[in-house]
């Protein structure tokens, strides 16, 4: 097999050049998709027969939760690549993904709380999924804090890689134990939407919103990665030429 593409992928300069071509597409596509999905969800779908109009929060809550969870898995993947192949770009990705994932984790928690008030009559319940999401936020914050505390880039990269791998091993354990704890402590709890077979007219804007959020994540990641590349490759000639 030809591995040159793999090495190219690891080259910051190559990535900087090629991602410059992606940027306009990503910008337009993600923002248009999000806009269309949210307007569709807000104005053009019928209300839920149980929850009324408050269910419209789903169009941001669910995509944000999806993102928050999958970004952590992506970070663990980048961490493995960093540790095994020592690809600089993977570590940069690991670094820039953490704040984005944390911001969507917060968004998911806050919109969940706002949704909970009209639906369950309370801002917060110690539901298994809510608790697991909160712990995920702690994991994100831990990685960001560790990155901030170690000053040498190399050591911070490897420490964060190890921490995110440890975290990703723990996520299933935490999820499982929180599920167990919840069923043990409160029998008749308010379950978060028992995945109703959604009507197609609600499902389509939701799928669009999820796609839009993922594209938006890609966009932000590329934006941040490009900055990180400039910052770390500042000693190279091409960055100096680029800047001045």
């Amino acid at each position: 097999m030809n591995w040159t593409f793999f090495h190219k992928l690891g080259s910051p300069k190559w990535f900087y050049d090629i991602s410059g071509k992606w940027l306009p597409w990503l910008q337009v596509l993600s923002l248009v998709l999000i806009l269309v999905a949210l307007v569709w969800g807000l104005a053009f779908t019928p209300p839920d027969y149980l929850q009324g109009n408050s269910y419209r929060i789903i169009f941001i809550h669910v995509p944000a939760s999806f993102l928050a969870q999958s970004v952590y898995v992506m970070m663990a993947t980048a961490a493995a690549v960093t540790l095994i192949w020592k690809i600089k770009l993977a570590d940069m990705a690991l670094k820039v993904m953490a704040p984005i994932g944390a911001s969507f984790c917060i968004l998911s928690l806050v919109t969940g709380a706002i949704w909970g008030q009209p639906t369950w009559g309370t801002w917060w319940v110690w539901d298994a999924r809510l608790t697991a999401m909160l712990i995920l936020l702690f994991l994100y914050i831990g990685i960001i804090a560790l990155r901030g505390a170690i000053h040498t880039t190399e050591a911070a990269a490897k420490a964060c890689s190890i921490l995110s791998l440890v975290g990703v091993v723990n996520i299933p354990i935490i999820k499982f134990s929180v599920d167990w704890w919840n069923t043990l402590h409160q029998g008749a709890t308010l379950k978060l939407t028992e995945k109703p077979s959604m009507a197609a007219e609600m499902l389509w804007p939701l799928l669009l919103a999820i796609l839009g959020f993922y594209l938006f994540f890609t966009l932000v990641m590329v934006l941040r990665l490009r900055i990180e590349i400039i910052s770390r490759e500042r000693k190279t000639r091409w960055v100096k030429e680029l800047v001045s």
């Binding site: 914050i141 505390a149 170690i150 420490a159 935490i174």
Partner: peptide, 23 residues
């Protein structure tokens, strides 16, 4: 081990370890 080189890493250590203690 991750915070061994960090000055005053006590709080950071707590932040890293507590999520692992929950199960």
């Amino acid at each position: 081990a991750l915070t061994v080189r960090v000055q005053r890493g006590g709080v950071l250590l707590t932040l890293l370890a507590l999520p692992l203690y929950i199960p």
